[in-house]
Design a protein around this nucleic acid. Structure first.
Lengths: 146, 146
DNA sequence: CTTCTTATTGAAAAACATTTTCAATAATAT
DNA sequence: ATATTATTGAAAATGTTTTTCAATAAGAAG
């Protein structure tokens, strides 16, 4: 079962109707290898459903985010970029050249958290880790574009 | 030398003039123990300089950020909160109750990065780690406010 | 297949955050 | 004291996201 069908299933299970505009948006996001801005999602969705409205994009993004299907990717300049969600202990690794973003599994930060908790008195409940770097292609070609 | 004087010095060294509105903004931010939104900085600054304009707040925030004196703190809902900058390998630990944010030193992620680099082909150049939790006060009082 | 209910849609307007423009002001060097 | 020029606040402009609302269409029920 591919990601698009999975997302459609989750939406249906939560009482959402599957419409043409939603299909267009889902297709764009589910198959994207880099984080997209709402505006980009809008532009790309118009390829498969030209009549789509930007408002619908925003509403669908909110829905998908609430259902845990997509997630925000944070960068220095902002955090309005969206990607298929990470699962469990996965985190994003963003290429600063082309924007291609992959997930990497796991991190053993237990020891660090224990040290911080005893040192600060805080109780750590959540963490947020993101890496930046260059993907193999960008390193070879030395190019920088989005 | 306290933080306010340090910041003033850095500004002066970079050809910036020290004005009353800037002093007000600097004081608010340099002494804050939680991350503030531009609008909050504006409100708080008016206490010591009532005539200040929101535009000046935005301009000064940009200046301070460019000079590395303040930094953005990211949260689920956005990333427009500002705090005195972390140094070196410090990272933020944000209390989800009251917002109080402290810095913790160091993290030995070298091994993790090496594993990721060999596994993915990416070259990791930068990382971004932020922790969320509850400070001792909030845990005791079980209260949640900002 | 038809009908009904109601979630969803797009356009327009509103709300909100941030930036730009510009003439007046004031910090700093001389 | 004077000159230079960075800085200021008000107003306007910009850009993004949300709300409102009547029309539409998805999916359930018959």
């Amino acid at each position: 079962m591919n990601r698009i069908d999975q997302w459609v299933k989750v939406l249906q299970e939560n009482g959402c109707r599957i419409t043409a505009p939603r299909r267009a948006i889902i297709q764009v996001l589910a198959e994207s290898h880099r984080a997209l801005q709402p505006n980009e999602v809008y532009e790309l969705s118009r390829a498969s459903y030209s009549g789509i409205g930007l408002v619908t994009v925003y509403r669908t993004l909110e829905r998908l985010e609430n259902l845990g299907l997509i997630q925000r990717v944070h960068r220095e300049d902002g955090c309005h970029l969206l990607m298929p969600a990470a699962n469990g202990h996965e985190h994003y690794l963003v290429c600063t050249g082309c924007g291609r973003t992959i997930l990497f599994e796991g991190d053993d930060l237990g020891a660090l958290f224990a040290r911080i908790e005893s040192g600060t008195g805080y109780r750590v409940s959540d963490h947020w880790l993101q890496l930046f770097g260059t993907c193999p292609e960008c390193r070879e070609m030395g190019q920088t574009h989005n």
